[in-house]
Design a protein around this nucleic acid. Structure first.
Lengths: 335, 335
DNA sequence: CCCACACAGTCAAACGATTTCACGGGGGTG
DNA sequence: CACCCCCGTGAAATCGTTTGACTGTGTGGG
């Protein structure tokens, strides 16, 4: 592969001149004819600047890291897509990694990214310990948190999970439900906790007493949603509605309801959270909270690029709006 | 951030000696005491070899590119996960990119990866023109194709789509179906075409005549599956079973069937392809062809790493086994 | 006549590692 | 005693760019 020197030799000029021409240096005074000669040499040799050499010289790689716990969780593909699109447009490559919510794996990955001298990091990992945040701050590497808030940084992109939970449950109450259960996410996550608080807030505002038996903790996956729902549906009196902390859990509820011979929404109303594509694949389609997943990804990349290039971000943190999408899975209770 | 020189200065040795110690050079003869002194210096300074400088010197980046058409298609997350896991274990970073099946975008992305001097490429893009393959071969960059076969390279990881289609349809025939329709994938894709051929093969083997009215071409997405199914279900006589070219299309069939008041599997049997997670979220759960998605990703990364490091691969191409998974969406036809 | 300045580039030193070759001193061999 | 080898390390080239400082003409003004 041709280098700057090769091009210079062919064009009969100094490598530095080629560099300036290729990079469009404004201060360079050069005869149009020489310019053309250089450009032609670039063309014939198929010259492509070596990004590695450039990175070494410039002390920046135009590369960012993107860590997610598990790309197979349908929450993340959209986020990744948005982030990659913005990064790509801004001229950055995205190095991608799965952490499986394993702090050791996360740490290892960050270390290799540090060695690769990447310019910044997007962390979409729910479980990230503040240890990681501290470590990152120490290293002086710009980073942005997605769907997670923590002390120690203002650079994060979130939605108002409490408000979303409150709105979801208020919708059920408005339909006439009183016995509303909640399948919570892991309570060590910010999102799981806030949605539970939203649930409690809505109940309180409607003057409905909170029963801890109506809350089961799940892990944001379908299987645990199914398990949790089975337990809830055996309760007496049985809840007439369930607010699931995410759509995957809600899908588990559908399965449990079908097995128990309960029809949605006639016998049981269900609300989810996130509005993943699968929410509309269900029958009936799932009432849920729409989260602008793609926009979360885009915002986080925008924020990070700004942080890298200007050293500070204009608007941060970013709090995005969610919206209740009413579909077929919610209806007034029978009775 | 500390450099080799800093460490050398602190330990009172030459940078080259530090390099040898850090890289565990076998030929190096060194006093244990000096070794320890160097290691201690590395520790105190928090020295981390600069991968950029190393890449420049070594002419390899330990980075591979991974191109998919659309990460939001549930086929890909598992593949990506598998590939990333293997790459990571082998000490490679994965640069990820969405092409949206846009050849221009794909080309741009490859060009930036070429500039970044990545060591190899995994292409999971269905639409890839042979132009791209040619270009890549010209550049001498090792690459592996996933879920796609083409002339001009032996390095690909696939499943036998024809056989899978044949098996899916044979299952329906065995249940007693005769009026079997097919919602095909895009016929410019290898996978779409092969599954259609499998469908035709199974019909032929059973002595059932092929009706082109029973085949609709879709684009592997839920919406077009829905549209296609609506058309098929208006046919007279109506098909009693549909083989969908992928699970997303099958999900569209569920929606169309529900709207038409048809029950699955009583009034209509459905078979999909891929066994994405959503296949089990449906009610009834979808009978489908299980594709080892994760293993496809793993194999492709293994193949690529071997190609990069040894210059050739031991077993290539890789053809993985698929398996019919019978669930609740198929049953004998009523009548 | 001399200085300043525009022009058209060139020179050389980084950036941070790796690796080949060389070297000085000590010990063993003939 | 001369020679050689081995040990432990050092010097220097190299990878491909970028960039601040510089050079050597020619032209114009005072």
């Amino acid at each position: 592969m041709a280098t700057l020197r090769d091009v210079a030799r062919l064009a009969g000029v100094d490598p530095s001149t080629v560099s300036r021409v290729v990079n469009g240096d404004q201060d360079l005074v050069i005869k149009e004819e020489t310019r053309q000669r250089i450009l032609k040499a670039v063309e014939t040799l198929g010259y492509r600047p070596n990004a590695i050499a450039r990175s070494l010289r410039l002390q920046r790689t135009r590369t960012i890291g993107l860590l997610v716990p598990d790309i197979c969780n349908p929450f993340f593909p959209e986020v990744i897509r948005g982030a990659e699109a913005v990064a790509s447009e801004a001229g950055y490559h995205v190095i991608f990694g799965n952490t499986d919510d394993d702090p050791a794996k996360e740490r290892r990955f960050i270390d290799t990214l540090l060695a690769a001298r990447c310019d910044g990091l997007i962390l979409a990992t729910a479980m990230t310990r503040d240890q990681t945040i501290e470590y990152l701050s120490e290293q002086g590497l710009p980073f942005v948190l997605v769907n997670r808030y923590t002390l120690g940084t203002d650079h994060y992109v979130v939605t108002d999970n409490l408000q979303a939970g409150r709105e979801a449950v208020a919708h059920l109450i408005e339909l006439g439900h009183r016995r509303i259960a909640h399948l919570a996410g892991p309570l060590f996550t910010d999102t799981g906790l806030s949605r539970l608080q939203g649930y409690r807030t809505a109940l309180r505002e409607a003057g409905i007493t909170f029963h801890s038996a109506y809350v089961e903790e799940c892990d944001f996956k379908e299987a645990s949603g199914y398990e949790g729902a089975r337990r809830l549906l055996q309760l007496d009196p049985r809840p007439t509605a369930i607010f699931a902390a995410n759509d995957l859990i809600a899908i588990g509820v559908y399965r449990a309801a079908a097995e128990a011979g309960l029809r949605i929404p006639d016998d049981l109303s269900v609300v989810g959270h996130n509005d993943i594509p699968a929410a509309t694949y269900l029958h009936p389609q799932l009432t849920t909270i729409r989260v602008p997943l793609n926009e979360m990804g885009r915002s986080s990349a925008r924020l990070l690029v700004e942080l890298i290039e200007r050293g500070e971000a204009t608007e941060t943190p970013v709090v995005l709006k969610t919206e209740l999408v009413v579909r077929g899975s919610t209806a007034p209770p029978r009775e």
